[in-house]
Design a protein around this nucleic acid. Structure first.
Lengths: 206, 206
DNA sequence: TCAAAATACGAGTAACTGCTCGCATTCACA
DNA sequence: TGTGAATGCGAGCAGTTACTCGTATTTTGA
């Protein structure tokens, strides 16, 4: 029989994929420091200790670098959110639920400033904006699902709106959270939880 | 006696300042559409119906354009906020106070997308970030003043924190407010006020 | 009416950008 | 051990950018 997979199937995967990962790490750094628009591909290559030619062996163009980076972030996000947004938290008291959700999300964002840089940039090219959307949808949809499980009688329309607002409230405090020092962080996170507790308890109960 | 002012004192003010205003209008458009980093000075000049040479007769460099634009926005902001944040609103019931503050701010932001574009860009050069700061401080300080008048017994530290958080909560909802259609806007603004009502009433009373 | 200043133009420049290409090196596998 | 694919390099290209400069026009003030 013929091959079951027709893909060209890169061979030197080990070295190559490691290089790709290094390039994405470098891109994350440079994007976080300068922003996507101001970051130059040569700077990304240099930050990875590679040449421009090497960079373009793995990525078609500048946009593809950020898209691949976004895809990698989304994978990691799904893993991190898998615990944070597990449906079982819907049964917890609201305060505990917020602990379980917010702590991992804060940890992820602070550990991945490149992710924050891409997410908070409002002027990305079309393809990049499309790559961004799944990440934006992720938190919203998971929160919406949890709220649905938590308050089945709450009208879906209003619940969707509530989830959207809650996510945006969190995002509004994110700049503070991202720039806070380790000592200011706990209080800030507590305040964030308090805000969301007040907001959500009025709509889906404590 | 000698002149009381030693400034070089531009002469052709009428035509020149009108040109400057046109160039700033054009810059606002282009920055709003493309973002500061991606916007080209030639595009700004073209949008104003001027040549690059003309642009650089009035502005030293690209950054100076955005800085001058920011200065103009801050002037207008002070005028708009003058009413919105008048100390007399501190005596109003919280709900009325929020009406008086939020409506003009929303109107200003929606009427000035170039302002929003600069304010929401997290990767501006140093000089521009400095020009941004007064605008960031403006809403925060005015709200802080009003909260101080409203709740004199509330500890200043906590009050400052409360004002900062409130401003950031508002900013978190701004993307929704900016992209909303005319029909979705009222509901969104009402939700915004409700969020801030809940948040503030717990801390400085209704 | 005239000279100087202000305004206006737009082709041009140096620097930088995203990206290419020819060629060298390293690895997988026979 | 040899061959081809994968990986690697970096000088360099075409396009764009921020910005300049020589020059032309308009306005001011006397």
């Amino acid at each position: 029989m013929t091959d079951d997979t027709i893909r060209p199937a890169r061979r030197r995967q080990a070295r190559g994929e490691k290089r790709m990962a290094e390039l994405l790490d470098a891109a994350a750094e440079v994007f976080a420091a300068q922003g996507y628009a101001k970051a130059s591909t040569n700077a990304v290559a240099a930050a990875a200790g590679a040449s421009p030619g090497t960079l373009y062996q793995f990525f078609e163009n500048k946009e593809a670098i950020a898209e691949a980076l976004m895809v990698r972030y989304i994978e990691r996000l799904r893993a991190a959110h898998g615990e944070a947004f597990d449906l079982s938290v819907a049964a917890l008291p609201l305060k505990d639920m917020l602990d379980r959700i917010i702590d991992p999300v804060v940890a992820f964002d602070r550990a991945n400033p490149g992710f924050y840089a891409l997410m908070s940039d409002p002027h990305l090219a079309a393809g990049l904006a499309a790559a961004k959307r799944p990440a934006q949808q992720l938190m919203f949809e998971q929160l919406d699902r949890i709220l649905a499980a938590r308050a089945p009688d709450y009208p879906p329309e209003a619940r969707t709106r509530t989830a959207e607002i809650a996510v945006h409230l969190f995002r509004g405090l994110l700049p503070l959270i991202m720039s806070a020092g380790e000592d200011d962080l706990p209080g800030l996170v507590a305040e964030t939880k308090a805000v969301l507790f007040d907001y959500l308890s009025r709509r889906v109960g404590g």
